[in-house]
């Protein structure tokens, strides 16, 4: 950003949107900054610092859990509201967002909109059926996280548009979620992560969303694995079948750290293990 000339510090979302609208192409929103400091875009002349616009709250409402775009990963991982909402998988993913230092800086908005293959929040938000709320000077709209990450989110946002909030729908009464990630060390770019949201009905799985991240550019649902689960009992054999389906359907990109074959196999193991955890949680809520 060799042509960066100034910072703006708007104190409301509206003011931020006005600044972004005023300098299309030249003004860029700045959330935590961990990625933006490496950006080389010569068009950027103004950084619109979002640290004063609010959007930090994490609250539980009737329509679900609201995550402000400027809430940090650390805050999400520790929020009472996340625990109260029964979204253990979300807390687990937030706690996996790099080291503690980086968790203090990484924001929900930045992690989702600045998507990388190793971003930890998008897979779990996708699994939980979360919706992103977008605003611009021209108005507001909503987009499911699933749609948002179908391409790079930055390309989904219109010029001057900000993601202001993520809404995670209320966990079903017999629901459970879990997130598992696998790295070489405790703090590492994930080699593969899997997020799962399950809903039990009676003694069977009523609904399942299984999402894999880290294996290619964008996270994605494993639909064959999901359909293996629905209508079946939450038992080991079913989870193993889902894992097999996941391994068969998952697309794996190259990664210099480990072979595709290994990461495909790893995905299967993680799917099975994360299903066990989610199912226990779902059953626990039943009890």
């Amino acid at each position: 950003m060799k042509n960066l000339a100034e910072f703006q510090y708007p104190e409301s979302v509206e003011a931020a949107l006005a600044l972004l609208a005023a300098s299309p192409g030249e003004a860029r929103p700045l959330a935590g900054g961990t990625s933006l400091v490496f950006a080389a875009d010569p068009r950027t002349r103004v950084l619109v610092d979002l640290s004063r616009v609010g959007l930090r709250s994490i609250t539980l409402a009737a329509d679900g859990l609201h995550l402000g775009a400027m809430a940090t990963a650390r805050a999400v991982g520790r929020a009472r509201a996340v625990a109260d909402a029964g979204l253990a998988g979300l807390a687990e993913a937030a706690a996996a967002c790099g080291s503690r230092l980086l968790q203090n800086q990484i924001t929900v908005g930045g992690n989702v909109v600045g998507l990388y293959p190793w971003s930890d929040l998008p897979p779990v938000l996708l699994a939980l059926g979360a919706v992103a709320r977008l605003r611009s000077a021209a108005g507001a709209r909503e987009m499911s996280v699933e749609d948002l990450v179908a391409r790079h989110p930055r390309r989904q946002l219109k010029p001057g548009e900000l993601m202001v909030e993520i809404v995670v729908p209320p966990a079903p009464r017999h629901g459970g979620s879990a997130f598992l990630t696998f790295g070489r060390t405790a703090v590492d770019y994930t080699l593969c992560d899997v997020a799962v949201a399950l809903e039990l009905g009676g003694d069977a799985i009523k609904a399942a969303r299984v999402v894999v991240g880290g294996l290619r550019l964008f996270p994605g649902r494993l639909c064959a694995a999901e359909s293996t689960l629905v209508g079946e009992q939450p038992v080991e054999a079913v989870f193993a079948a889902a894992a097999a389906a996941a391994m068969a359907e998952v697309q794996v990109a190259n990664d210099f750290r480990a072979s595709r074959e290994y990461r495909r196999e790893l995905c299967g193991v993680l799917v099975r293990r994360v299903l066990q955890v989610a199912a226990q949680r779902a059953a626990g809520r039943t009890a």
Partner: peptide, 23 residues
């Protein structure tokens, strides 16, 4: 790690992993 042109693939602490307190 190196590619077939002899270029190092992981010259950073993000990709060359030394242990932290949690390991």
């Amino acid at each position: 790690l190196f590619d077939q042109a002899g270029r190092c693939r992981n010259p950073s602490f993000g990709h060359y992993k030394i242990f932290s307190t949690r390991d």
